[in-house]
């Protein structure tokens, strides 16, 4: 039997093709052409995504004269790291980086902690008005935060809990320029895209079989202990994924940062004004009345953007699985 099998494998491809009336060749040709087409298509699209980043990298190492030299396209003729020094000084890079890192990390931890509690509550408990409250979560996802930005702005500018502050000190607190309001909002699940995290975490906890919980209950675990000892260890992948999202989106967020953290030097807010700083620097320090040239401003903005995203790129290189895998395995369904 085995001998016969071996013998049949030794028949050449063309022989087998002849036996199948050309079907085999047709199949082979289709699959090869499909994979070539696919490779071209995917290469093109990957290039489309990566090209701006590559372009920024090459531009960031160029001197100003290289920018106007039509012979120089992607490899700089005069290699320099001066652009990085300039961008770093415009953005106050060291301090902004530390601030951004601290705030992103603490906000992400706080948000995911609270969202886990809420998501677990929605997934594993029955209580009156549950549907109504969950509809509110959906509402939070759908409402653009900009709608309420006007009144939040004033709310924190003249902050007062039921007039207690006014009664004691005679004036309201101005919390708009401090970090506190944003932490308060994060603790109340109203930070950046928090509705989405609640939704994802709830979706995960819902898929854990009820028997597990009941077994824990029989063995003497209370509600809190079940949550901490049984459920949380299981939820590690989805929590990492949500945490990474919270961290990264907070890092690049402009809206909440501009609104609540205006006084804190953050990379995202510094990046938004880098072009103006550049202009001011050229006028005041270099004494060139016209301001910075457009090309060079472009170059500095690219360098600045690169400096903001480099930490994220490194994070993504190491935690790529954490971002993608758990999201696709949790199965978002409605």
């Amino acid at each position: 039997m085995t001998k016969k099998n071996n013998a049949s494998q030794k028949i050449s491809f063309w022989e087998r093709n002849r036996q199948s009336d050309g079907y085999l060749l047709k199949q082979k040709a289709t699959s090869v052409s499909v994979s070539i087409l696919r490779a071209i298509l995917l290469f093109g699209m990957c290039f489309l995504i990566l090209q701006p980043i590559l372009m920024k990298i090459s531009v960031s190492f160029m001197e100003e004269q290289d920018l106007y030299n039509t012979m120089v396209i992607s490899i700089p003729e005069h290699f320099t790291t001066y652009n990085y020094e300039l961008s770093a000084s415009f953005m106050d890079y060291g301090k902004s980086l530390a601030n951004t890192f601290g705030i992103s990390l603490s906000v992400a931890i706080l948000q995911i902690f609270v969202c886990t509690l809420v998501g677990y509550g929605f997934a594993r408990f029955e209580f009156p008005f549950k549907k109504l409250w969950f509809a509110c979560v959906i509402l939070v996802i759908v409402i653009p935060p900009q709608t309420i930005s006007t009144s939040l702005h004033l709310h924190f500018k003249y902050f007062d809990i039921m007039g207690i502050g006014k009664l004691l000190t005679g004036k309201t607190l101005n919390l708009r320029s401090s970090i506190l309001p944003y932490y308060m909002m994060s603790a109340g699940c109203m930070g950046l895209k928090n509705g989405l995290y609640i939704f994802m975490i709830r979706q995960f906890f819902r898929n854990i079989p009820k028997e597990l919980e009941e077994a824990a209950y029989v063995d003497g675990c209370g509600t809190l202990k079940t949550f901490l000892r049984i459920m949380l260890p299981d939820a590690k992948p989805i929590l990492t994924s949500c945490f990474l999202f919270a961290f990264v989106w907070q890092w690049t967020d402009g809206f909440y940062s501009k609104m609540f953290l205006g006084n804190v030097r953050l990379l995202s807010t510094q990046l938004a004004v880098i072009a103006d700083r550049m202009d001011a620097w050229v006028v005041n320090t270099l004494k060139i009345p016209g301001g910075a040239s457009v090309g060079y401003t472009n170059c500095i903005v690219s360098t600045g953007t690169l400096m903001v995203i480099v930490p994220l790129l490194i994070l993504y290189l190491f935690a790529q699985k954490g971002f993608v895998e758990s999201l696709s395995s949790s199965g978002i369904k409605m």
Partner: peptide, 11 residues
């Protein structure tokens, strides 16, 4: 039900 409300109370 009470513990459920406790869990979602931050929200």
């Amino acid at each position: 039900a009470i513990s459920g409300y406790l869990f979602i109370s931050p929200f």
